[in-house]
Each structure stands twice: as C-alpha cells, then as structure tokens.
Amino acid sequence: MIDLLIPTVAQGLLWAVMALGVYVTFRVLDIADLTVEGSFPLGAATAASLMVAGYGPLTALFIAFLAGTLSGVVTGLLHTKMKIPALLAGILTMIALYSVNLRVMGKANLSLLGVDTSFKIARSMLGLNMAQTTLIVGLVVTIIVGAFMYWFFGTQIGAAIRATGFNQQMIRAQGVDTDVTIILGLLISNGLVAVSGALVAQSNGFSDVGMGTGTIVIGLASVIIGEVLFGTRSFKNCLVSVVLGSIVYRIVIAVVLAMGMPPNDLKLFTSVLVALALSMPLIKAKLGIRKVVR
C-alpha cells in the first residue's frame, strides 16, 4: 500500500501546480477557462522538444512557462478586446493549440528516453528511488508556486485581479482596467498549467499531443475536493486546500483502479465526480444541510 502511496502523492503534487492554475481562473477570476486543455500539453511539448534538442530541464521548464503564459494572453485578448465569451475564447485557443503542439513536437508523441529530465538529475543528486525523487521535486515546485501565488495575490496588482473576479464594476470605479487584470490572471493561470504539463511529461518520460484531454475536469475536481475537505477560510487556506485536493484526487483514482475499474472509464468517473461535487450546494440545500462551501 505504501509502495503505491508515494508515487500517487508525487503525481498529485505535479498535477497540483495545474490545479493551482485552474484555481486562478475558476475561483479568483470566476471564469471557466478551457485554454488549460491546450496549455497543459503545450508545456509538455515545449519542454520535451527543448530537452530532446539538448537544453537543460530547468531552461525547458522556464520556456514552457513562458509558452503557457502566451496562450493565456491569447485567450485574454480574445475575451476582453474581441468580446468573445470567456468559455468560447478558451475553446478557440485550446483547439488552435492542438495544431501548435503538433508543430512544436513535429509529431504526435515525443519520447524522453535517454534524456536527462529534472527527475533523473535530482535522483542521482539525492540518491533516492524515482518515486521518492518525484515526491521531493513535486513538493519543492508546489511550495515555490504556492508561495509565489500567496505573495502575488497579496500585492496591489493581485488584489485588483481578485477584486475583478468579485465585481468588475467596483474595481473599474477604483480606476483599474479590468481588461488588463483579466489578461494577467489568464496569463498566470496558463503559465502554471504549462509548468505542470512540462513536469508531468518529464515524469512520464514522454510528451503526447493528447495528454491535455480532461485537464480542466481534473483541475476542477482538485479545486472542489480540496475546498470541500480542507476549507476556504483564507486565501492561504484555499491554496493549501487545492494542493491537498489534487493529492486526494490521485489517491481516489489509484484506489478505484486498484479495485478493478477499467482505466478507460477514468474520464467518465472524473466527470461524474466533478458533476456531483458542483451540484453539492444544491443537493445540500434540498436536504436542508447547512452550507459548507462558499
């Protein structure tokens, strides 16, 4: 059981970075951003291609982050300047990124066999096995990302972005250009999602053009599971909840797979899970249970 737990938690941490990105759009900006379905494999494709071309894993991670931010800016411009509804803007970017990702990799699947990924390098430095190494790298990255988000959303710009999610009219009356704050939020979100994609590709040992399918649902599942189980008292609390939510999600998946659910049914299972979680407030109200989630 413990053999299964460490790699599961490690995967949860790598995907937690993506979940934190989804949190920025879904909760902070109050937008369901589907760009992540394309920016996740974009991060993977960018990092994998660079590493195959001989660049170091950290450089690859950083460029993947930049590529992700760029995709967020595209969605942001479509939404704010072209007045396309956020959901549709995200879908357009996501579909466009499928072609972009194929171009970046040159083919549908790029193997990292024989390439020094950050995990392989860290393993030889730490002298641990692969699962333990992944856990530690995941933990370090998640803490860095979490600390960055805690700092950033406490700054003047960060507060303006949060206010945009709550009340655009109010923050415009305070002199903030909401087009800019929305674009900034999408930029950060998709940058983080791409970093997560790059990490997952390095961990899996390959990048695949199809690996983004279902990203948004996994992200939402992590956010909602985290909020329900671990609370939303403060912003710090929310960030920790999302990370823990991502880990719990991985554990749930590992358990149902171990119990014999066919892997092909995974996405169906996740969708049902998220649909149930999203309808929780209504179900609770109908049953007369007091509201726990905000």
Binding site: T155, Q156, A159, A173, Q174, G175
Partner: peptide, 17 residues
C-alpha cells in the same frame, strides 16, 4: 478600503494592505 485608497493609481507589486 485598501483598493479604494489607491483609486486612480496604477497598482504595483507592493503589499495591497
């Protein structure tokens, strides 16, 4: 109140509060 105290100013990277 912190947001309102900066009405019309370009937000920066200093703490909001």
């Amino acid at each position: 109140l912190a947001l309102a105290s900066r009405r019309g100013e370009t937000p920066g990277l200093g703490w909001s509060l």
